[in-house]
Design a protein around this nucleic acid. Sequence first.
DNA 1: CGGAAATTAAAAGTACGACTTTTATGTCAC
DNA 2: GTGACATAAAAGTCGTACTTTTAATTTCCG
Lengths: 233, 233
Amino acid sequence: MTTPAQGLHSHVLAALGLAITAGEYPPGTVLRTDELAQRFDVSRTVVREVVRVLESMHLVESRRRVGVTVLPTARWNVYDPQVIRWRLAGADRPRQLRSLTVLRSAVEPVAAGLAALNATPEQCRELTEQALGMVATSRGRRLEEYLVHDIAFHRVVLSASGNEMFARLGDVVAEVLTGRTHHHVMFEDPDPAAVTLHVQVAEAVRERDAARAEELTRRIAVGALQELDVLAP
Amino acid sequence: MTTPAQGLHSHVLAALGLAITAGEYPPGTVLRTDELAQRFDVSRTVVREVVRVLESMHLVESRRRVGVTVLPTARWNVYDPQVIRWRLAGADRPRQLRSLTVLRSAVEPVAAGLAALNATPEQCRELTEQALGMVATSRGRRLEEYLVHDIAFHRVVLSASGNEMFARLGDVVAEVLTGRTHHHVMFEDPDPAAVTLHVQVAEAVRERDAARAEELTRRIAVGALQELDVLAP
DNA sequence: CGGAAATTAAAAGTACGACTTTTATGTCAC
DNA sequence: GTGACATAAAAGTCGTACTTTTAATTTCCG
């Protein structure tokens, strides 16, 4: 189960990106393009393009007469959705899930507050609909369906905030929720309290109650963090 | 005053990235690699590498038989520091500054709270030092020096939070603060209230008072937002 | 023996040309 | 009009040759 790989470029990029983010090449490791070309059985052209992309993500640095050096984690563009996906697929998924969840706990309440001020009627409707969808699928081992509504719900909130930076975190949240659902054993149904909170957030937004929307979302976030504490080291 | 351009790649990348983020090519615009190669007087090889990087930032999409299509703003990787820099240099700098400041207002208080729990003695010391530096340079048209301390201060807070995602926002905050300082007419000295708040945050962190650190930082953020409201449409 | 200057070579950067693959679009038969 | 087919346009890939930078080594002078 590797990558679809429609094109040599994506294939090599996925392979290298995954390997690097997985820590397979410790920081400071030096790779040579010729060697990589040989290893993946592609032309140097393809490798160079891949390296350029990796370089733009600050995963590696390419210097003449030296080669392609793997950079320390601290330099990585950890907001790049691609990098996030690679890391979530790799070894330290728990650590990654935690730091992303903390980020969510900071951003989403504020976003919800703004959404209460800025959401269009259409967005309010969508929000309510997704919350109801969550309620409907919250019992009876329907986690996959629940997940779809959950993701949609948070996407709408972030998007309705009217802030571009928040809106763009939709993908990140989707990755987190997906990772979380697929990681846990997936036997239980979601926490009923969380479901209720989502419904109430939808209400608060509809009623333009920013403070309440913010506070309720904060509770969702705290819950998510606690859940993580329980289920991860 | 373009880019240092050590290497054809960076030159073309900067030119194209800047042009696209500036809205010079509206979404849907189609570029052809041959044409670009000719226009910038470089080989197709270089153009292709640039396009690949632009593609990884989701600024463009390259499809066979079609060409390189400029994507709508909503698709852009707005967390990529490079993209942020390009956009801050471009036309809608005010809008960009605002959305980034809102992001800060969500993240930094939480980060400060965590910093109070996690900061090392060394980080506490550094924090105090920078706060004092801000005090020292807060009067007498020393905005450039003040800026250095301000940036350093916020970097330490974000870094001391112990959360990787927060830490990586240091660059973004640096860009915002720099953009802000250089945008405003730079006649006045910084708001004394803000300076005091920074000193108090350093105190709160040192005393491990998370709630207070969070609250004080929130006030800094609110102040920054209000300042923006006053000085921008 | 030491340190600076010149030399060397290794690796990335760039260029070019040939070829392949995908696919939007236009054409033709029905 | 609709569907099958042919066409061509553009990106994708490859190989090779050449340039440029620069780490490392060697040389040479004090």
